[in-house]
């Protein structure tokens, strides 16, 4: 209960926002090199997410020798991945690439999935589009991992041609190694 009192010359202003409590957790430790590591692809089932991820993986494999690439699909792009799926990915992989954050709820959940994986020690690169950089910044702050860096590709994604998919994949191939290596 508030105990402040005002005199006749003043009135009180009440803040309607409520407090936010959050601990800022650091991102996972980064590997020295990518060759020989197991890569998890987490497809959020959004339109064209599979095309972006498969094309990006092919582009990455031109320069990185992954020990294995494991493909996972989560049921809903607008919901967090199930904790069982996050645990399975973390147990069997060294790196994660997830997509696509090209809408408000899917971007939020890609970031939230990435934070969950980073907390389990797995460097995670979430692919978002340019329209959702600000939302990513706010989301990672709200859930307490300000050091999380996304991969940012051009918007849009859901209605693009294969040529445009390849262009986006080239952006991913350029940025993903930096995110995983912490460069």
């Amino acid at each position: 209960m508030l105990m402040q009192v005002t005199d006749s010359n003043s009135v009180l202003v009440f803040d309607p926002r409520g407090i936010v409590e959050s601990a800022n957790t650091p991102i996972a430790a980064r590997p020295k090199k990518l060759d020989g590591l197991r890569l998890a692809i987490l497809d959020n089932s959004k339109w064209n997410a599979d095309k972006i991820l498969r094309t990006s993986t092919a582009a990455l494999e031109k320069s990185v020798m992954f020990a294995k690439v494991n493909y996972y699909v989560k049921h809903s792009f607008s919901k967090d991945a199930a904790s069982e799926l996050i645990a399975e990915i973390a147990a069997n992989n060294d790196l994660v690439l997830t997509a696509i954050g090209d809408c408000g709820s899917c971007c939020s959940c890609c970031i939230r999935d990435s934070v969950a994986l980073e907390k389990l020690g797995i460097p995670a690169a979430a692919i978002i589009t340019t329209e959702f950089e600000r939302e990513t910044e706010l989301t990672r702050t709200a859930i307490g991992m300000q050091g999380l860096i996304p991969i940012v590709i051009d918007h849009p994604v859901s209605s693009i041609t294969q040529v445009e998919v390849e262009s986006r994949a080239a952006q991913v191939a350029l940025q993903a190694p930096k995110v995983w290596l912490g460069q």
Binding site: L2, Q4, T6, S8, N9, S10, V11, L12, V13, F14, D15
Partner: peptide
């Protein structure tokens, strides 16, 4: 609840 006092 953050509370501030302002002139009436």
């Amino acid at each position: 609840a953050a509370v501030e006092s302002v002139p009436s």
